[in-house]
């Protein structure tokens, strides 16, 4: 009986430079090593039915990444976590997993908010600078994609920005309906992202009633 497993995972410093595709490959291979009964797509070249929410930029670590995987046989979330954690490389860890009904929208479609923490490593940012950013009506930045370079107003994508111990914490939009690149905000603050450690502390579902954890309201099994 096919089922859908949603899992949260963390990316440590060892694997911060993996690209999204690298990560996908790494998970596919780990699942095969762990004998996880992953469901495959049809066709000449079957691929595991595996997807991730909001790709993480290269160079950033994370505490709260999410993925969905379809299984062709039942497996308890506990077994899923422990079997995978046994074979995952250093720097990649399943935090928790939960079996969800197939009617639940894919995690990649619902996640639309992210929280980042920046460790400045001795440098400081004047509080006025932070206030200026938050007080602006518009924050146009140049964004280069495959289609070319265009100006994007990133102000509506920034929800909060605060100075914290040794760094910054900010919340912003991710996903298809608006996506802030951390380097864009850091650039506005005069910081080169290549000089500071950035970590994504979590991904969320933004709603009228606030920010919700993608696994909220579903029974969760913690990994070990």
């Amino acid at each position: 009986m096919p089922s859908l497993m949603r899992f949260q995972y963390a990316i440590g410093s060892e694997l911060r430079f993996l690209s999204h595709l690298d990560l996908l490959r790494t998970f596919e291979r780990a699942m095969r090593r762990a004998n996880i009964p992953v469901d495959l797509t049809e066709g000449f070249h079957p691929k595991p039915k595996l997807s991730f929410a909001a790709p993480l930029a290269v160079g950033i670590t994370s505490q709260g990444e999410y993925g969905d995987v379809f299984l062709r046989e039942a497996l308890s979330p506990q077994e899923f976590c422990s079997q995978l954690n046994r074979v995952l490389p250093k720097g990649l860890r399943i935090v928790r997993a939960v079996q969800v009904g197939e009617k639940v929208a894919p995690v990649m479609a619902v996640v639309n908010g992210a929280e980042y923490r920046v460790e400045l490593g001795g440098d400081t940012i004047p509080a006025e600078r932070v206030q200026q950013v938050m007080a602006s009506d518009q924050l146009p930045v140049e964004r280069t994609t495959k289609k070319g370079t265009r100006l994007v107003d990133v102000r509506p994508l920034i929800f909060s920005l605060e100075l914290a111990e040794g760094g910054l914490v900010f919340r912003c939009a991710v996903g298809a309906e608006g996506n802030l690149r951390p380097e864009e905000l850091l650039g506005l603050l005069g910081i080169d992202i290549r000089d500071v450690f950035v970590e994504r502390t979590g991904l969320f579902i933004r709603g009228d009633d606030g920010w919700r954890d993608p696994m909220d309201g579903i029974e969760v099994t913690h990994g070990n």
Partner: peptide
Amino acid sequence: MDRDLYKLLSRVSKPARYTNNEIN
């Protein structure tokens, strides 16, 4: 990863080819 190494690797293409720790 120390900060100097991080800064260096942040500035090159495909840094994951230099970071080791592959399975096996």
